[in-house]
Simulated scan of single mutants.
Amino acid sequence: MDRTRRWLTDLAANLDQSAELVDRGREAFDADPAVRLAFEALGNRVGDLCNRLIAADPSRFSDPIWRQAARNRDFLVHHYDRVDEQALWVTVSVSFPELRERLETYR
């Protein structure tokens, strides 16, 4: 398996994990700090994989959603002390499913 396919497979797995956490509901996200930290970790992984894909094939991964995920990762990593919980919830519950849906056209 080439690295791009491996990264796409890893990205799908991480997006699927995030969907499982979202299925626990907003109440679980608000009540359990471990869920919020998991969302941050998944944001880091998803963004890192998007960065790799963009670097490997910029023309194939030119849709703005790839850069948005990569920028989100940079913010989470470098400004973790300023993460807005509402924005984090929206990223994982809305943007990640959109990315997951688009991912199928790249596999």
Rank of each mutant, 00 (worst) to 15 (best):
F39E: 02
V77L: 13
A55R: 15
E85S: 09
E40T: 09
Q86L: 12
E85L: 11
F61K: 03
D81W: 04
Y80R: 08
D81V: 00
V90L: 12
N51E: 15
W89V: 06
R73D: 03
D81A: 10
R71M: 13
S62P: 05
D48C: 07
L88S: 00
R60I: 01
G47L: 10
H78S: 11
S59L: 15
S62K: 11
R60E: 09
S93M: 02
L49D: 10
L49W: 10
V83T: 14
A70C: 09
D84P: 06
E85W: 01
V94Y: 06
D48A: 13
D74G: 06
W89F: 08
R52Y: 10
L88D: 03
R52S: 12
R82H: 12
V90N: 11
R52W: 07
R73I: 03
N51W: 08
V46F: 08
I54C: 04
A55Q: 15
R60F: 03
N72H: 14
Q86A: 13
A38C: 04
Q68L: 09
R52A: 12
E40S: 08
G47V: 06
F39T: 00
W89G: 00
R73A: 04
R67L: 11
V77F: 03
G43V: 13
V90A: 09
H79E: 04
V90S: 04
V92A: 10
S62G: 15
S59H: 13
C50T: 08
L49P: 09
L76A: 03
A87P: 01
A41V: 12
V94P: 01
G47Q: 09
Q68H: 11
P58D: 06
Q86P: 03
L88R: 06
D74K: 06
D57V: 08
D48K: 12
V46W: 03
V83S: 07
R73F: 01
D57Q: 15
I54A: 09
E85N: 09
D57G: 13
R67W: 07
L53F: 08
C50S: 13
A87L: 14
V46H: 03
R71E: 15
H79L: 02
P58G: 07
W89D: 01
A55S: 14
H78Q: 15
A56P: 10
E85I: 01
V77Q: 11
G43F: 12
V83Q: 05
L42G: 01
F39G: 00
L53W: 05
A38M: 07
V77R: 07
G43N: 12
A56G: 12
A87V: 14
N44L: 13
P58H: 10
D48L: 13
D57K: 14
E85C: 03
V92S: 07
I65V: 14
N44M: 13
L49C: 09
W89R: 03
L76E: 00
N72S: 14
A70E: 15
Y80C: 00
L53R: 05
R67Y: 04
N44R: 13
Y80V: 02
S59A: 15
V90Q: 11
N44G: 13
L49G: 07
T91G: 00
E85K: 02
N44V: 14
D74M: 04
R60T: 12
F75T: 08
D63Q: 15
L37A: 12
V92C: 02
S93H: 05
G47W: 03
D84V: 08
L42K: 02
S62M: 07
S62E: 12
W66I: 11
R45W: 11
A56R: 14
